[in-house]
């Protein structure tokens, strides 16, 4: 469980990046954090494994105060996958790359080799076991980065902008993968700008703007609240925009999903036909 108690954070430069953050995330959960560039999203997630410690307030990760624990200790439970895989890949082979974290955490040899095989398999990277990560494409490197973190099976997985630089197919695979992880009882927290991706994933949403959490709620509640979204420089999903434009046709206003939208329109035309035939 993650608990922020009245957390504020100021960078040494004087920029206040978090202001009075109070939030509780229970296991298992699936959360998306959205908000404008510079809203404090990345600062927020860097607090989850103690890379940054609050200037004021306390953070508890599974009951452990982050001020009293090392980054390594906290990372065992909170795995953060950063936005750019090139900021972490450095080994000669994908296999060694995945083993790196496991070695740091002191797993024994047998477990390491078992976990590496498991992670390679999970992310469909087995054929690249002995390949240099630098030879892979951008999308593949992103998968390797994810595998290096998943290898030690953290209870909470944090993804910073997982969809950046990913094309439609890659995004769709990522979505399926995330859903699979959450269904296995893991907590997944992702930071993203990609509101259509969020609408497809249907997580709970935390909206940040100007260093504060301005709202939390289900995807359906938040993505259909145009006031909140515009405060956070987020453009509502197209489907939601459409239903808002059609509000006079007696259609519900809390729609984010394509297939739900399709069904509602089909129903509406049927009703229309029924009325006509009457």
């Amino acid at each position: 469980m993650i608990e922020f108690k009245n957390v504020s954070f100021t960078y040494p430069s004087g920029a206040e990046a978090l202001k009075e953050i109070n939030v509780k995330i229970k296991d298992p959960d699936f959360i998306a954090i959205i908000g404008e560039n510079g809203a404090g999203k990345t600062t927020f997630i860097k607090h989850l494994n103690g890379i940054l410690k609050p200037t004021r307030g306390e953070i508890y990760i599974n009951g452990l105060n982050t001020k009293k624990a090392s980054v390594a200790e906290l990372s065992r439970d909170v795995g953060i996958v950063f936005q750019n895989p090139d900021h972490q890949l450095f080994c000669e082979t994908v296999e060694e790359e995945i083993a790196f974290g496991l070695k740091n955490f002191g797993f024994n040899k047998d477990i390491i080799s078992e976990r590496v095989t498991w992670a390679l398999n999970l992310l469909d990277l087995t054929k690249y076991r002995k390949v240099s990560p630098f030879m892979l494409s951008g999308g593949e490197r992103k998968r390797v980065a994810l595998a290096t973190i998943l290898a030690w099976d953290p209870k909470i997985l944090v993804l910073d902008e997982p969809t950046i630089g990913q094309d439609f197919n890659q995004k769709d695979k990522l979505r399926q993968f995330i859903i699979q992880l959450t269904s296995q009882g893991r907590t997944v927290i992702m930071v993203t700008h990609d509101v259509e991706f969020v609408a497809d994933c249907n997580p709970k949403i935390i909206v940040m703007s100007h260093s504060r959490i301005i709202t939390t709620g289900s995807a359906r509640e938040v993505l259909t609240n145009f006031d909140i979204l515009s405060k956070a420089s987020v453009i509502p999903p197209q489907i939601t925009q459409l239903f808002s434009q059609l509000s006079d046709l007696d259609l519900p206003q809390n729609i984010i999903d394509l297939y739900e939208a399709k069904q509602l329109i089909i129903d509406l035309t049927k009703r229309r036909l029924d009325n006509e035939s009457l």
């Binding site: 769709d172 329109i265 089909i266």
Partner: peptide
């Protein structure tokens, strides 16, 4: 080809497939 088709265009395609 797996291009990121806008949702409204996809909705149109879906409706077309259902006869609308």
């Amino acid at each position: 080809l797996g291009i990121g088709i806008p949702k409204v265009t996809r909705l149109y395609n879906e409706l077309r497939a259902s006869g609308i």
